[in-house]
């Protein structure tokens, strides 16, 4: 069985790529949406309360991290749709490697996240933003962002398997947005009321955003967050990866 684990996972990844090809508009919308958010917050809303220095330098790392958090929704929608259509039943009744369904999902979502990050960075560059720290810092930042996305991905798979139906995705969206905005993506915790600021500082998204700012040389972003940006996603994975795998196996109960 394990002989097929790799080929089956690759086949399932290719299935997702074929879906992109069939729905280029949907893929494009997914890539443009974060750019819109960036432009809105950078130029229209006029955020940046408590931010010293250039707001763009503060905002863009925040947007990169926020986009990774929102990826949770996309993962969850895709998994619930497969469950709802019954196509997962067909996969499960076939002599394929059991985990390939989930591995294919992860690979495709991670690939999409890489694309999203590159588009956001390119748009930032076009607006005149230049990250400090050089190529090594850029790669390190991308690594931390994708690690965070990977944790969100498995939370998304788990929630989808728990919810089981596309209708319940909305309930999660209502929760993801406040968690996304209750972070330091747009404004510093110091500019918020005490308890709110504390919650914002604890948010894993804030740690990843600050770690990326630190790597890009944004003033005021302390290096200690890099460690937290490692530990938080790993801790979330340690909880949600086994939960999701167990939930998937329990589809047969």
């Amino acid at each position: 069985m394990s002989v097929h684990a790799l080929t089956d996972s690759w086949t399932m990844t290719r299935r997702e790529l074929a879906r992109w090809q069939r729905q280029p508009v949907q893929l494009a919308v997914g890539l443009v949406f974060p750019v819109m958010l960036l432009l809105m917050f950078g130029y229209l809303v006029g955020g940046g309360r408590g931010v010293a220095g250039d707001y763009r330098d503060y905002l863009i790392p925040g947007m990169l991290a926020l986009t990774m958090a929102f990826g949770l929704e996309g993962t969850m929608i895709a998994v619930t749709q497969d469950l709802d259509k019954g196509v997962i039943d067909r996969f499960r009744s076939m002599p394929m490697a059991n985990g390939a369904v989930l591995v294919g999902r992860s690979a495709a979502d991670m690939l999409q996240s890489v694309l999203t990050l590159l588009v956001l960075i390119a748009v930032g560059a076009a607006l005149g933003w230049r990250p400090g720290g050089g190529p090594a810092a850029l790669l390190g930042a991308l690594g931390l962002l994708l690690l965070f996305r990977f944790a969100m991905l498995w939370i998304g798979i788990h929630l989808a398997l728990v919810a089981g139906r596309p209708e319940l995705v909305q309930a999660v969206q209502i929760l993801v947005w406040p968690v996304g905005f209750l972070s330091n993506a747009f404004a510093t915790p110091g500019s918020m009321p005490g308890w709110l600021g504390t919650a914002v500082e604890w948010n894993p998204l804030s740690h990843t955003a600050t770690a990326v700012r630190h790597l890009f040389g944004v003033p005021g972003a302390e290096s200690g967050h890099v460690g937290w940006a490692f530990l938080w996603p790993l801790a979330l994975l340690a909880v949600f990866f086994p939960l999701a795998v167990r939930r998937f196996a329990r589809l047969s109960r």
């Binding site: 879906r19 069939r22 259509k85 039943d89």
Partner: peptide, 13 residues
Amino acid sequence: LLGQHAALDEELG
């Protein structure tokens, strides 16, 4: 297996 509901990828051909 032919289940009660079509078990296909609706977006693909």
